[in-house]
């Protein structure tokens, strides 16, 4: 049984101009100790689906799901209070902007030990000791001296390390990292990613890594879930996905990687943008930007089987060619 299982998750925001569906029938499942990467452009609903799981969305959001289960516990029927005892302790989250994610008014020690105070029975001195341990584990030099520092005295990389120390303080079974390195320097990015991987292995922790960076996916993930405009369009293990993407969107994302571009010529890009609230296509949401689209795509897209990466596509690609063309050939 998987550690986290979400089925048919939808999130709708009440906006001034009517309802906006940010997440549309997404399934997510994560096994224990697994690293799942959720990939997609801005606006593909990858952060929103995880924020919905954590219960961190504003009141204007309506969350519905058929199944939302964590470690055998049904999150859907659980009281808010009971859910708060899981959030932070068993599922923790780190965010994109480490500098603004720490509270500027409190010291590092306060913010780390607050988590321990909420979820453990440790006394004051034990919490301090554990905070030092945690800071050491995330690679903060001379942690005793850093306990009393305020967030504005830390660099972005250090702030993210503090966030990670905080998030892992109760040894969660699942850590959700929402674009943890987007705001950081490239050299720091690699360090933070290595740290996350190491912590997963040491603590038997599963990781959901939300990113738009295929390079990060290749380095980190066991399994990849590609999202587009609030829908899951493909899901595969990392190696097969890079070797043979089945959804045209995944294929386009991969071919837009600078590493894959040919020495001469343009870096391919995906023309157009993710559809917004008012220009949602009637059929397949990727159809207007898809170079393989046919007339039937305007009426809807079919979910393919596991052998084709659960691709939400009428013409899933096999080795870069739509499957139906191959049949004809």
């Amino acid at each position: 049984m998987s550690l986290l299982e979400i089925r048919n998750l939808s999130v709708t925001f009440d906006t001034a101009s009517g309802p906006f569906r940010a997440v549309d029938g997404v399934d997510v499942s994560v096994d224990a100790r697994e690293i799942l990467s959720i990939v997609g452009e801005s606006g593909s609903g990858k952060s929103v689906s995880m924020l919905a799981l954590m219960g961190l969305l504003p009141d204007t959001a309506t969350v519905t799901a058929d199944v939302m289960r964590f470690d055998g516990q049904d999150l859907k029927t659980m009281s808010k209070r009971a859910k708060r005892s899981i959030i932070g302790r068993e599922v923790a989250m780190i965010f994109q902007e480490p500098m603004s994610s720490l509270n500027p008014c409190f010291t590092v020690e306060f913010q780390i030990s607050e988590m321990l105070r909420k979820h453990t029975d440790l006394d004051r001195s034990a919490r301090r000791k554990r905070a030092i341990e945690l800071m050491e584990a995330v690679g903060i030099p001379s942690p005793e001296k850093r306990l009393g520092t305020f967030p504005h005295q830390l660099s972005g990389g250090m702030s993210q390390r503090v966030m990670i120390a905080m998030a892992t303080s109760c040894r969660p079974k699942l850590l959700i990292a929402d674009e943890p390195t987007t705001a950081l320097d490239v050299t720091i990015q690699a360090q933070i990613l290595d740290l996350l991987k190491e912590l997963c292995a040491d603590n038997n922790m599963a990781l959901v890594l939300i990113t738009h960076d295929m390079g990060v996916v290749a380095q980190m993930a066991d399994r990849v879930q590609v999202q587009y405009a609030g829908q899951k369009v493909e899901e595969q293990n990392v190696n097969p996905l890079f070797a043979d993407p089945h959804h045209p969107y995944t294929a386009a994302l991969l071919s837009a990687l600078p590493e894959r571009a040919t020495a001469r010529g343009h870096l391919p890009s995906i023309r157009g943008v993710v559809p917004g609230q008012f220009d949602r296509p009637p059929g397949c949401l990727f159809e207007p930007r898809c170079s393989f689209a046919v007339a039937s795509c305007r009426r809807g897209a079919k979910r393919q089987g596991a052998d084709l990466g659960h691709a939400l596509c009428n013409r899933p690609l096999i080795n870069g060619v739509p499957a139906d063309e191959k049949v004809e050939a």
């Binding site: 959030i87 932070g88 994610s101 909420k118």
Partner: peptide, 20 residues
């Protein structure tokens, strides 16, 4: 963002609003 962080710790709304 730090208010979201405080909520992600599983803190009660009173503490998130009244302290953080």
């Amino acid at each position: 963002d730090y208010v979201r962080t405080a909520r992600s710790k599983g803190l009660a709304p009173m503490r998130v609003i009244g302290l953080h």
